[in-house]
């Protein structure tokens, strides 16, 4: 019985999928909706659904552009066209991309170092927390888009001001999370070690660092999508190379396909950065579930 059920489900899905290729807009979109609903009902594993949602999104994009011609390509280029542009323009894109990724990497690394050190400083010296915290909040309330041109204006077109913008855009969640971690250390754990005669370095190694690491990694996870966006904003404001420049130039010459190509690449790398951050955090928090 169960076997037949599976066969039926697969058949239904295939049928709905094929139905989306009919030239009738109403039938196609209804079939698409039914397909999404049945997929979400049939598949119980939420991880598979999450991955599927990405493909469904791209498929819908394909349907409304190339298939049904609902949206003209000068408003929304189709995914096939975007892919085509990425491949045909790879010689232009790659140097720009490398520059962007470099800035992002150095900026984000510096941001982590800065964010974590700032939190430790704030935790150890109370007046510093009182002074810095409001300033840090103000810094986060200032739109990057407003501060980036100023930083470029003050410090020129080199890499350094762009790295500065990335730090500006990403350090705060790291600092706040690290601070929360430092404040939530169980004093009993420290007391046990102190009673034995532990040095400050022992307490740091055995309690402070392992406890705070989880929080630092959560901060990194939250900030990670903003790292590449920070670079992009800086590049948008003024630079001679980078994906920000590529997208801006494409936009100025109404090459919407290239704008989308740039955007898709950026989204891809943002997801990769975020994925690395998430897997790192999971790796170091397995003990919470007792899992080895």
């Amino acid at each position: 019985m169960k076997k037949y059920q599976t066969t039926f489900k697969v058949a239904l899905l295939v049928f709905l999928f094929l139905l989306t290729f009919t030239p009738n807009k109403f039938v196609t979109l209804s079939a698409f909706l039914l397909l999404v609903v049945s997929l979400s009902l049939f598949i119980k594993d939420s991880r598979i659904l999450k991955i599927l949602s990405f493909f469904i999104f791209v498929y819908l994009w394909y349907l409304v552009t190339d298939c049904l011609l609902l949206i003209p390509s000068y408003i929304l280029p189709s995914p096939v066209k975007v892919l085509h542009i990425i491949i045909s323009q790879k010689d232009v894109i790659i140097p720009n991309l490398i520059s962007t990724l470099k800035i992002t990497f150095f900026g984000f690394t510096l941001s982590i170092l800065f964010g974590v050190s700032l939190a430790f400083l704030m935790h150890l010296i109370r007046p510093i927390e009182d002074f810095i915290y409001p300033v840090a909040v103000i810094s986060q309330s200032t739109p990057t888009i407003a501060i980036a041109p100023l930083i470029i204006l003050w410090f020129g077109f080199g890499s350094l001001p762009k790295i500065g913008v990335v730090v500006w855009a990403t350090f705060f969640p790291i600092t706040v999370n690290t601070l929360v971690g430092l404040k939530s250390i169980d004093p009993d754990m420290v007391d046990v070690l102190k009673a034995i005669g532990a040095k400050t370095s022992d307490i740091f190694k055995f309690v402070v660092l392992p406890h705070t690491l989880t929080y630092i990694l959560t901060g990194i996870e939250i900030s990670s999508p903003y790292a590449i966006l920070g670079t992009l904003t800086a590049e948008w404001m003024g630079t001679d190379i980078g994906m920000g420049l590529y997208i801006r130039r494409s936009f100025s010459s109404f090459e919407l396909g290239q704008v989308f190509a740039g955007a898709v690449i950026i989204i891809g790398f943002s997801l990769i950065t975020w994925g690395i951050a998430v897997s790192l955090r999971r790796r170091f928090t397995r003990y919470l579930g007792g899992e080895k």
Partner: peptide, 17 residues
Amino acid sequence: EGPVGYMPQKGVLLPWF
């Protein structure tokens, strides 16, 4: 003199080790 064995409420083993 020397180290003291102190066991707080709930034991508090370090969960990450």
